[in-house]
Nucleic acid binder design. Structure first.
Lengths: 215, 215
DNA sequence: GGGTGTGAAGATTTTCACAGCA
DNA sequence: TGCTGTGAAAATCTTCACACCC
């Protein structure tokens, strides 16, 4: 049985909400309230959870801590995961800043850049290295995820180096589609395409309100 | 007839590829090659295009320029759109940098921040203003899209100000889910959730390879 | 009453088969 | 032959109905 991307995306959102609920001390949460938060129906939430294979929660809703723990185990989100950033330009270092103080299960523990001078200037708690050390450091520290924030022209090459060092998951901020082999999970964070999506959705939605456009 | 988000997302990717193809001087492209690029099947590409309502391209594939123009009209991606950024911290200014030199149909023409001192230091060609001017500037310049890059605690309030100024589409970089009214299109760029998705997908995929986990 | 879990029904999306064009 | 465009079939996803529990 194959779990769909939509299901995975929704349960990840559920997991994020559970982290919040645990922090604020909420003990139980119903499928109805989960659904409201992540923007779907209670049926879909229950079905998703059932598909993931986490069950046995009768009566008063899902007990937040236990549910989070069990869901996290199935999704491999329970233990901290380490990540690295390739490219410490403005985007790369903004991401570092952004993640450095968050408590969300991901640890960015290394950064790489070709510009050695830049490395000296970066004021951050994570360790930064020249790109030539990438393979070694990733293997040595057992880093699992890679974030690409290099210029467009170097993105494909960077991806290949990350993969050959053993990275299995890649998040790409460079505005280019990468050629990635089977088995590696790869996601684009493409600002332009997101803006396109918003515009296009606005356009098709408006068209519908106007009563259909000769279609 | 309602066009699904998946279809919109795919045709947006097609549109982005067409921009590239036009730049490199490619004249014709087939549904098969579009499919290969965006990672789907040729049937889906043709069906999507048909659903959007752009037809009449027989024989040797889609003529890039004409096809891009007609698709762009349907999706409202033909004319340049203006956007603004709320929050000029590290993420906000990284986005400015990133977009300033790109030629992709979106123009970030204003930035807002509460910290007046910061405004003086920002070295960019776009105009930056204190948040108090937000409503006026957006209305005056007819800005259509808003990018939220403020700290988590101010994100909801910022969204409300953008919407009351007339913004219809919002891209949110703050790691919090916003409460947004019907009719406004809203998309999260959530780094943590993207990393979760990659981890979870890796986990479910691996599980499958191992032969199923008692499900 | 309020809640979960799940098979079956219903709706939607994707795939396919093939008409039609040059 | 190589391609688009689309109705119909197949596959998938979502919703529902209801068993079961407190």
């Amino acid at each position: 049985m194959e779990i769909s991307d939509n299901t995975i995306e929704r349960v990840c959102k559920v997991f994020g909400y559970l982290e919040y609920l645990e922090q604020v001390g909420c003990e139980y949460i119903s499928s109805k309230n989960l659904a409201k938060y992540i923007g779907t129906t209670e049926y879909t939430v229950r079905k998703d959870i059932s598909l993931i294979g986490v069950t046995g929660y009768d009566r008063k809703g899902y007990p937040v801590s236990r549910f989070k723990r069990e869901l996290g185990e199935k999704l491999d989100l329970s233990k901290e995961k380490s990540a690295c950033i390739a490219g410490l330009g403005r985007i790369g270092s903004a991401i570092l800043d952004y993640e450095e103080f968050r408590e969300d299960g991901f640890n960015i523990i290394a950064g790489f850049d070709t510009n050695i001078n830049k490395l000296e200037r970066i004021r951050t708690k994570i360790e930064v290295y020249p790109v030539s050390c990438m393979e070694n450091i990733i293997k040595q520290k057992g880093i699992e995820l890679g974030i690409i924030a290099v210029p467009t022209g170097s993105a494909q090459n960077t991806a290949e180096r990350l993969i050959s060092a053993g990275i299995k998951g890649i998040l790409n901020f460079a505005p280019v589609k990468l050629e990635i082999p089977e088995g590696i999970i790869y996601l684009d964070m493409d600002l332009t395409n997101s803006l396109r999506f918003i515009s296009a959705k606005l356009a098709t939605q408006t068209r519908k309100l106007k009563g259909g456009n000769d279609v």
